[in-house]
């Protein structure tokens, strides 16, 4: 009985269980093979599709690897100047308060040049969602040290590893923002395994839904790899991320319902 089932019997529309969402355009992603950006883009779009808010969502693209995010996300998008995405999102949310507004930023954009905008938007308690992709490096420009680069981590501007005496300590911007009264939901997730992808999707869905309560900023950090910047294969980069990034950037919810999660 089982032998009689052929490939063409299975591949039918009624048996479909998973397909790339139509909210992602058919453009080929400009990211390196294995980059977490693509997965994160897709789960954001899946969340928007499941919530049925495609028409009522405005995304803000940053500067960095994901500068062309508006080419891939089939929703209303606006491109911000470097680091200024939270300021632009503030304006859009205040002018159009019934829209779901999110920014999509990397660590060079959010934690370096845009620190002021990020912290002040969080402190004002703007009702926006920030999706923060942290790969500990400036990926687009060739793997230079970012504020989030780990201590001892090699990058093209720290070939002997980051030395805190000269270059300072890595910045845990997510924990910093969780301290501010203006943030309502803060979480850190990853997208390297199916289980983590599902958790991240849940966190993003939570963030979008809580935004409608108008209680403050919702913030989801996604710890991601940068295999070309770290000079590794994608699988090695994911392994390196688990071994080195997660001890310093532990996964999980940091602030839920406006209260810090005690650990």
């Amino acid at each position: 009985m089982e032998e009689t089932i052929t490939k063409s019997d299975i591949i039918k529309p009624e048996n479909l269980v998973y397909k790339k969402t139509d909210l992602m355009t058919d453009n080929v992603l400009s990211y390196c093979p294995g980059c977490g950006h693509g997965t994160t883009h897709r789960i954001i779009m899946e969340t928007i599709e499941e919530m049925g808010v495609q028409k009522d969502t405005i995304g803000i693209a940053p500067v960095g690897c994901s500068v062309l995010a508006y080419e891939f996300m089939n929703i209303d998008m606006q491109q911000a100047a470097h680091g200024r995405a939270p300021a632009l999102a503030t304006a859009i949310k205040r002018l159009l308060p019934y829209k779901t507004v999110f920014t999509y930023q990397g660590d060079g954009d959010l934690a370096a040049i845009g620190t002021a905008e990020t912290i002040h938007a969080a402190n004002r308690g703007e009702n926006i969602t920030i999706i923060f992709i942290n790969n500990g490096i400036y990926g687009m420009t060739g793997g230079q040290m970012a504020p989030t680069t780990l201590e001892g981590m090699k990058s093209s501007t720290t070939p002997y590893g980051r030395d805190w005496e000269m270059m300072g300590h890595p910045l845990k911007i997510t924990e910093l923002l969780a301290q501010l009264p203006g943030t309502y939901f803060v979480s850190r997730q990853a997208v390297h395994t199916p289980a983590n992808v599902r958790k991240t999707k849940k966190a993003i869905r939570n963030a979008f839904e809580l935004q409608k309560l108008n209680r403050g900023m919702t913030f989801v950090e996604v710890v991601s790899n940068c295999n070309s910047g770290w000079k590794m294969t994608p699988v090695q980069a994911n392994q390196w991320m688990v071994e080195n990034m997660f001890p310093f950037y532990p996964l999980g919810d940091i602030k839920v319902d406006g209260e810090l999660v005690k650990k």
């Binding site: 048996n15 479909l16 397909k19 992603l29 997965t39």
Partner: peptide, 14 residues
């Protein structure tokens, strides 16, 4: 399909 960064995989099940 869920971990694929480029979303190239479509899954069918029977």
């Amino acid at each position: 399909a869920i971990v694929c960064p480029d979303g190239v995989i479509t899954v069918y099940r029977v």
